[in-house]
Computed example of a mutant assay.
Amino acid sequence: MSLEVQVTFDAADPAALAAFWAEALGYRLQDPPGGFATWDEALDAWGVPAERRNDASAVVDPGGNGPRLFFQRVPEGKQVKNRVHLDLRAAPGLSGDERMATLETVADRLVGRGATRLLRVEPEPPFVGGNIVMADPEGNEFCLD
């Protein structure tokens, strides 16, 4: 039996966090269900009140290869460091200065979208290629690798 993977994020603002990760990964917002032209049309039909319309959001890989990311509203904020995090493979096959320059370019783009830069880890061959530790707009850590 084969299982599909979905990564779920707890969030204060699911729509904003979904938009950030769609931009970061080149994903897109999930289409509304069949029979509906927009999510607002679907939510209207289902009787979802305005104050509940940002309770969840999802983004998908347009190529259908990567996992679906699901964002759900929770009342509590982030408490501690993530035990699991995403690595964004921004510089596969690159090393040294070229690798770090590529990671810096991606880090700058994501900071412009609301991410926070936390730490730059310098290359230490042969085991550490170098990476940049970041946090999304709600503080979830991820690495540019």
Rank of each mutant, 00 (worst) to 15 (best):
R73P: 05
M100E: 08
G64F: 13
L94E: 04
N82D: 15
W46M: 14
W39N: 03
W21A: 06
E23H: 10
R52A: 13
R120F: 00
A19T: 13
N140F: 12
P62V: 09
P92V: 03
A45Q: 09
S57E: 11
R99D: 03
E23Y: 06
G96Q: 04
V59Q: 00
K81N: 09
A56M: 12
D145T: 12
I132Q: 05
A12M: 06
V74N: 11
A115M: 06
L103E: 12
V5R: 02
L110I: 07
E23G: 08
L69A: 12
L118R: 15
E141T: 07
D61V: 07
A24Q: 05
V106S: 02
A50V: 12
T116V: 09
A15S: 12
F127R: 15
L25G: 04
N131Q: 10
P137R: 10
L144Y: 08
A115C: 04
L110G: 01
L88A: 01
V111A: 12
Q30T: 09
M1K: 00
Y27H: 01
L94S: 02
F20H: 01
R109Q: 13
A11L: 05
P62K: 11
V5Y: 02
D31N: 09
E76R: 15
V59T: 07
E122W: 05
P123N: 01
A45E: 10
L144E: 09
V74T: 15
R52F: 12
Q72A: 14
V84W: 02
E51D: 15
M1D: 10
R52S: 12
W46K: 00
E41S: 07
A42M: 11
E138F: 09
C143T: 08
N131S: 15
L103C: 10
G66V: 14
L94T: 04
G35E: 01
E122P: 01
Y27V: 09
G129V: 01
A115F: 03
G47L: 09
P67H: 11
A50R: 04
D10K: 06
V121P: 00
A24R: 05
R113Y: 10
V80F: 12
A101D: 13
P123M: 07
R113P: 00
S95A: 14
G77D: 11
L94W: 03
G35C: 04
D40A: 15
E41V: 01
G66F: 14
R68S: 07
P125E: 09
N54M: 03
N131E: 11
G66L: 14
V80L: 13
V59F: 11
D108K: 05
W46C: 03
R99N: 09
P33T: 07
D97H: 06
D136N: 08
E124C: 01
Y27F: 15
G34F: 02
